[in-house]
Amino acid sequence: MTDIELHWDDAFAANRKSTPDHVRGRLSPENAVLPGFPSQPQASRTASMSVRKATRARDVRADPAPMRWAIIGIAVTFLVLFIVVPLLNVFAQALARGFGAYFAAIVQPDAIAAIELTLLAAAISVGLNLVFGVIAAWTITKYEFWGKSVLITVIDLPFSVSPVIAGLVFVLLFGAQGYLGPWLQEHDIKVIFALPGIVLATVFVTFPFVARELIPLMREQGTRDEEAALTLGASGLRTFFRVTLPNVKWALLYGVLLCNARAMGEFGAVSVVSGHVRGETNTMPLHIEVLYNEYQFTAAFAVASLLALLALVTLIAKVVLEGRATNAANSE
């Protein structure tokens, strides 16, 4: 760690802009964790050295073959049984009656309405959580202050609260029997059983995702880049947009994608606050439930397959974005 910090000072002194790309790749400390820098062919020599070292090390740490095959067998069986098969089943059931039935289920007016509502609610919730997630991550990683660990815990809180409770608390606040219910009714504002309630519940449930993706990376990067920018006369906002944001863009992108996948797929919390009005307050997951309970299995799985695709795209994005991070780290 101290080693890297020394290098950083060298790199900084050499003025990062004029430093050749491959040198910069190896010297700047943030590359160890920062995705986004192009991979360096020059690094392959050092890489081959570390590979040789790793092979030598593996000899001592190698497990006996029977143990190896048993563990691989159990692990693969477990993952296939619990993850791969259920996922395949979604698509198999969706297409069980052919593509015609599949598309008919998706373009059905109630399904379209559900998709539109889901997109709208997710766009608002993700937008809000993006802004506040970045602000929260900035606060936590760029300053030292009393009670920081409590703040982190509270940000994580929605993770361990049941989605049903997340919905319930908003019913208790804004529902007809709730604390603000009478006032809202007087002013003819609908929160529960309407879009605002769905958005509130979604924001609550997806609250930690953006901040959680950013905090470890921003903590590792420290405040030196920002301090340098400020010393050179940049304003706080300019420092954020020109220094901090580019440093964390890939992690931020993944945080947003994950937040979005969870927002579009949220079921429990939204189910409690939405009121299940078909074609009006049914999001995609709620629409799936309605179809399933009406024994329209093919249609239910068709809509479900869209959300499953979204999950797959999110994971592929994660692998790609992490690949960038590892490339950058390897090139150091």
Partner: peptide, 8 residues
Amino acid sequence: PTAVAGIA
């Protein structure tokens, strides 16, 4: 999404 996992 949990609902998708549920029906699957």
